[in-house]
Design a protein around this nucleic acid. Structure first.
Lengths: 377, 377
DNA sequence: TGACGTACTGAATCTGTGA
DNA sequence: TTCACAGATTCAGTACGTC
């Protein structure tokens, strides 16, 4: 593994090179890095300003580096840096690229055209995304990472057991649930303003590097920014080469890296994921047909009743609302737990909705353990 | 909305047309469908299924086939059917395409090149994915849907409130957690084997159709397969046009559709978006005496106040304007929703103007249904 | 010290209608 | 086509001040 290591004496290791990414990569020897992590401009194409419902202004990404005249120019740029990245990558190396729907399809298509072999597309589900303020689309709550080998016959590294251990001993899936980079982790300038508009969380790079590299592997980040990749590489005792155009970012990243202490030889990495609570929206039971649309529900004493709508609301006469709201409204109560208030009929018996929720959770659990057993056996 | 409806007399509605998708779409008039849902072949390995735009079969390239030419064939095929889909789509219509990392980047890139405007990429997280048996990659636990409008300036439909209701009254996110199609829902042949390798779950189509179409909208599915789209369209009282090449699937899908009972008129209604509610001019409330001229209104915290004029404007000192304009002016805000900003007193309580508007709409609804009842009886 | 309330923020392609 | 204007719209956090 890590065939790139033999060449490492020629490489500018553990440095962040100031310069344009394509021309700087040209100075690196072919096949010299084990892994590339790239967070290129997304080509967001934001138009006007956007305000929250409270009229505060959203601080959008309006930096020059994210401006491209059209799709063709973005494609040219993408093809150029991916071509160099592929040259620099060891034959058994892998590349990670992160993006959103604005650019990820360009990137994926060009990766395939250049001969990269896609291994997974990974979904970073954000625990705390920015909401959609105008109610005109689904909340954009994820970003996509593509993980690809240099070619179809690359004998790439994947630390299967480490990923499984990181995920409570079930196989790591292609959807990762991680919070945004906020709070103390976010680098700020002297005015307390964020230093970089798109700083990635350390947890994301931690998982990426832990999955696809080993100690002393060389990781190249052609769009280093504030240096999350170098910082995590140093912490996990990988070597890094950063490339960054803006001198301020180079400086900030290098001092950030200097603050990192590499883990000790015997340090066992057991970072726990922030686990997701198994919330079951009532609507999902309706969608999945566990409770047919049009079913009539009533309270235990059958004093009030309501009908299930396709969107998971209940209707009673002119009143419509969630299972909780309508229950409260019909009983003139300040609040109501719809799961225990509303009952449905099954085999001549009236059962609370909560029974369905339990069954749905039970079902999910069974499926998970079956998957686990299948994977183990 | 549903501008496509006016053309519906010429359309083969609620049918599944047997034929190749491109040439069959060519028989449909331009701008005639409100929504397209497409689950195209994922390909890249299933080369036997590939056809050129002229529907001729691609030569069987075997051992030493060239991947690049294979990609190109897939792109040609994709461009051909997406071009026809775009022609058939109404100018305000939207398209959904589902795929995996094998093909979704080709599809997304071509969608953008054809002028579609991506609204969201949606991640279908599978509650019960197939585990990765080799342990060489992350468990492929999701598929991706792209939701796109026909063009950047399409005034597309998004049933925001219905989606919010379906998700326990928080905005629906771009990641959906749904089980695979299994059990009774899965169509099987006489030997108990699954009829189709990639039958999609009904819950997925339920959400798709509920989000982006309304009753009587026309939905086109150019790769109908076992007919999940037609079945859900019928259940939710949308119209459908299916296209499917294999006669066995056409037959299975049509008999499946026949088993569906459309929801009743009042059962199919979902939570309405406020934008679609009939507009109530503030002046009409004043006219009808629901709010006497001279009433003093104030904001919730009683920092500013204004008096109701006979023409429905508000006056505060030397300033005069609509409920929205004056609210914005007095708070130095760029805009203001006067219905929720201004409050009036009733029984010692301060209520937003919106309460009056709701009451007026409620009243109108009651009157309308009484008139209907009177006419019927 | 702790409970509570207010302010702020995050890769965002973010309105619809009628004159 | 452009302009004006009505009016619709937010979730999960962190940080900090007050009581």
């Amino acid at each position: 593994m890590s065939g790139a290591k033999s060449m490492s004496m020629e490489l500018p290791l553990d440095q962040i090179l100031r310069g344009e990414c394509v021309e700087t990569m040209r100075t690196l020897p072919s096949g010299s890095v084990d892994c590339v992590f790239a967070d290129p401009p997304y080509n967001l194409q934001l138009r006007g300003e956007l305000r929250r419902p409270d009229d505060s202004l959203v601080d959008g990404v309006d930096d020059d580096w994210d401006k491209f005249s059209d799709l063709q120019e973005y494609d040219r740029f993408t093809r150029a840096w991916l071509t160099e990245a592929r040259r620099v990558l060891h034959k058994d190396g892998t590349i990670w690229v992160i993006g959103s729907y604005h650019n990820i399809f360009r990137i994926g298509a060009i990766l395939q055209e250049l001969g990269f072999w896609i291994l997974n597309d990974i979904v970073w589900r954000k625990s705390n995304p920015m909401p959609n303020f105008r109610g005109r689309r689904f909340t954009n709550a994820h970003e996509t990472l593509i993980w690809a080998a240099r070619s179809e016959d690359s004998r790439y590294r994947f630390n299967y057991q480490a990923m499984k251990a990181l995920n409570d001993d079930v196989q790591m899936r292609s959807d990762w649930y991680l919070p945004l980079c906020t709070g103390n982790e976010r680098l700020r300038n002297e005015h307390g303003l964020k230093l970089h508009p798109t700083q990635k969380p350390e947890s994301l790079l931690h998982r990426v590097l832990l999955a696809s590299t080993t100690v002393d592997d060389v990781v190249l980040d052609p769009f280093t920014g504030t240096g999350t990749t170098p910082a995590m590489a140093r912490r996990l005792r990988r070597r890094f080469i950063g490339i960054e155009r803006h001198p301020d970012y180079v400086e900030a990243a290098m001092s950030r890296v200097a603050r990192e202490t590499p883990l000790a030889d015997d340090a066992v990495v057991t970072t726990q994921d922030k686990r997701e609570a198994p919330r079951v929206p009532f609507g999902s039971l309706v969608e999945r047909g566990l409770l047919p649309v049009g079913t009539v529900l009533c309270d235990k004493k059958q004093r009030v009743s309501a009908t299930v709508s396709p969107d998971g609301t209940l209707v009673s006469g002119a009143k419509r609302g969630s299972i909780h709201k309508l229950g409260a409204q019909l009983t003139n109560a300040p609040s109501c737990n719809g799961w225990t208030f509303w009952h449905f009929e099954r085999n001549g018996e009236f059962l609370p909705l909560d029974v369905l929720r339990q069954e749905s959770l039970e079902q999910a659990k069974t499926t998970a353990s079956m998957a686990k057993a299948a994977a183990a056996g």
